[in-house]
Amino acid sequence: MPTHDPPRPSPPSPRTYPRWTIALIAMALILHLNYWLWDHDGIVMGLPVNFLYHVLLSLLLSGVMLLLVRRAWPAYLDDEGPE
């Protein structure tokens, strides 16, 4: 147990992973199921609609991950002092 608090670069977050991260991930999971485009056979930008949907979703996921590592990066990970 460390007897002193490590210096923190940003205001300490109350939890290792804030609640909104869970909401964000839940949203991504729901979007992934893509129940609404299953039977569409249109072709947009050269790709079948539901293929394009998932490709765009993958691109969006990069943004989601960016939010996670920027806004919800657990502080203890960057603390590399001796135990």
């Binding site: 993958s58 691109l59 996921l61 990069s62 991950m65 960016l66 996670l68 590592v69 990066w73 990970l77």
Partner: peptide, 12 residues
């Protein structure tokens, strides 16, 4: 922090 690049770019 080296994981950050992997996490963000993996979907791409």
């Amino acid at each position: 922090k080296s994981f950050k690049t992997t996490i963000v770019l993996y979907p791409l």
